[in-house]
Amino acid sequence: MSKALNVEDLVKRYPTGVEALRGVSLEIAPGELFALLGPNGAGKSTLIHCATGLAQPTSGAIQVFGHDAIRDYSEARQAVGLAPQELNLDWFLTVEETLDYHAGYFGMPKRERRERTKELLETFSLTEKSDERTRTLSGGMKRRLILARAMMHRPRLLILDEPTAGVDVELRLELWHYVQRINQEGTSILLTTHYLEEAEQLCDRIAFINDGQIVGEGTSSELAARYGVDSLEDAYLALVGRKELSRSHAEVTAI
């Protein structure tokens, strides 16, 4: 069976000469919940953008369920749902329109769109806000809507780019539960996060990315054992660096 995501020796060099990805390879199995951890600027979002067509790789290959993200972009993108880090909602649309339009962009028929919109509005407690314009929503509501939007077309691979950055404890736990539930229902998930705790609790396997390269990969205990340390945190420290960890750890303990 094809991998949910298969990345081979992926390089992304921007016109400025900056090399955001320097030969990244990784595999995510169908049904897997996979975490990608790394400091800001490590290449996490660039990798995600290459998988979803928002960036074009310089070299290497990237496939989603066997579909090449460049050659068979239509099939590859159909299989992916992206909840980006930025709250990139369309100000002109209402909450309901945001979901309806997204599903339309993915070719979903009207009746199915209507049912799916209703279902996700309820799941994410957005039903009462359905006629409101997206710009009037609170940050937490926008985060929920972005996740609902990514789920609208029933993607087989859901990519969550720092979904819990800046959200309160209640919503964070709610998002965790939802992520676990849809993963149990069969959706493969790629999660990027700064929070080691989040990756450890939710994910089957973890990869560390630093300076455009995968510097470690495995389960939490495998990574700790491989580097002769007691915890994932120590493994991250060994591989990525102390500075970034202290920042993200402070954020976790602050909530």
């Binding site: 067509g53 993108r77 990139n88």
Partner: peptide
């Protein structure tokens, strides 16, 4: 807004 990413990451040609 970055909202154009929703169309750009869709299967549209």
């Amino acid at each position: 807004q970055g909202a154009i990413q929703d169309q750009l990451s869709s299967p549209a040609s």
